[in-house]
Design a protein around this nucleic acid. Structure first.
Lengths: 275, 275
DNA sequence: CGGCACATTGAGGAAACTCAACAAGTGTGG
DNA sequence: CCACACTTGTTGAGTTTCCTCAATGTGCCG
């Protein structure tokens, strides 16, 4: 039942077309060198496969999926994966590192719309417009797998479970947005920050990492922006949580000392899971 | 200050080329005439077809779609279409009237997550969990067409344009949520209310109804809840808009007197189109 | 007509914002 | 290797927007 996957297949024609149109064209070669190891790992050998796209397909179908994916594009901190108004032709699975998505209003104010950790899919908001409506930026050194959307659609119509999984992913994205809506429109600053911490904690845990100790990939500004708060409020809340022995915070390093208190502050429906 | 909020969750006119095939015969003011006959009208004869699901399929495929749809379920004001935790097995196209969706937090507080007008699709948030995560309730006398989701998935894998349209719909839902996020987390009460009014106005216009004079299907409480405000704030804002001759308000009847002021007081690029 | 949900208006208070200053960490170039 | 600019984060003081509480008005339905 196991399928051996060809490591290479890096440059099929779709890929070339895409590269040609990409603004980041110039960086490609450099980046592929940088990440030579991870770039070549097939889905089959990827540790993220249980929580990433491959979970939706049977082993014997995985090769088809594997073939359309361009793996391991490396990104440096601050680099853009795509920008608002870029043509949409792919979605991306985060392989390592972390990204944020954001849009910019006409006055130039930024709105952070999401944070993405390994195994999560970025870029689904551009489907309807054929252009990205937001931008995606690496919060730290990261790498992503590119999944050309037209091919994914084609494959989806052949593999029902993949189609379903993709509907499912988008549905989950909607759910998450609704929970965020509740958070931002009804909850206090404390609740919002607690909820974000718990969410990140849970996502770390899902990846087999510590649920209590982790490094926040984003700045206070990003947190504040995402949650609809002022930076100062975020900072003060962290300080207070620390005084109350709920957290230990040192810059971006966080240790959750009293999960119960956090959960109490943050309603649990935000987490989709018991605290 | 500026806000972005989509004109319509699902049915703006910038659709894929695929929709070119659908004929739009007489899309007049049918929406207001809720006659008993509507229950039996096939998609083919439905005045909403240019902005509803049928726009995604060719004429010769429409019959297949038509066959899986259970049409014209009538609902009375306050009646539920589904409730959170109900098993998810269908999505619904609003045929007439209006619905709201909402979830209830553990503390029992309600969070209104969306308003749905004729031609829009409700219920897509339940796909990933196989259960609805929110409830949908009629704001007034309404009727909906039920679309069993497993059949829709099956059909989607046969009709690429339908699959794409559905991805597109969900993507648009995500976009709308992101814009709402910006609105709620960054904008003033004035801006939020202005943006909602403009959104509803635009959606009415798209349906061939007046963009300046319309009746809000939802209560002040729902508006406040949706926008993350107190009812009193909504009320006061309406009053002030009226004093400033931006609106004429009489209960739920609204007339937009100064669209420019609305757009400026809240934003012009809400619409991705001139205001 | 009363009962009830919905809506408006006023007064006072509080959570979070803005402004401002400062501290610490990061990177760049001389 | 240090000086300097710059970004990021923290803390304080005063202000503002919006919320809460409370009272009253209005329309609808049995």
């Amino acid at each position: 039942m196991s399928v051996r996957l060809v490591v290479s297949r890096q440059c099929d024609e779709q890929h070339e077309k895409r590269c040609a149109g990409s603004k980041n064209h110039g960086k490609k070669n450099h980046l592929e060198r940088v990440d030579a190891m991870t770039a070549r790992v097939s889905c089959n050998d990827c540790s993220l496969s249980p929580i990433c796209l491959p979970l939706a397909v049977r082993a014997d179908e995985l090769e088809q999926l594997d073939n359309i994916i361009r793996r391991g594009r490396a990104m440096k901190r601050g680099e853009h994966l795509y920008r608002a108004a870029d043509t949409f032709d792919a979605v991306y699975a985060v392989r390592s590192g972390a990204l944020k998505t954001y849009s910019v209003s006409e006055e130039g104010e930024e709105q952070v719309t999401g944070f993405y950790l390994p195994g999560e899919i970025v870029g689904m908001d551009g489907i309807s417009t054929a252009r990205h409506v937001s931008s995606a930026k690496a919060l730290e050194t990261a790498s992503v797998c590119e999944i050309p959307f037209d091919r994914l659609e084609f494959l989806s119509s052949r593999i029902p479970s993949l189609q379903h999984h993709f509907f499912s992913l988008m549905s989950r994205e909607i759910q998450a947005d609704r929970e965020l809506h509740l958070l931002v429109s009804k909850k206090s600053a404390d609740d919002r920050i607690a909820a974000l911490l718990i969410s990140i904690s849970a996502r770390h845990k899902l990846r087999g990492l510590s649920a209590t100790t982790f490094r926040l990939p984003m700045s206070r500004y990003d947190i504040a922006n995402y949650l609809g708060l002022a930076v100062e409020t975020v900072s003060r809340t962290f300080t207070r949580f620390q005084q109350q022995h709920i957290l230990r915070v040192e810059g971006r390093e966080v240790e959750i000392l009293d999960r119960g208190a956090l959960c109490g502050a943050a309603p649990r429906e935000i987490l989709q899971q018991p605290c």
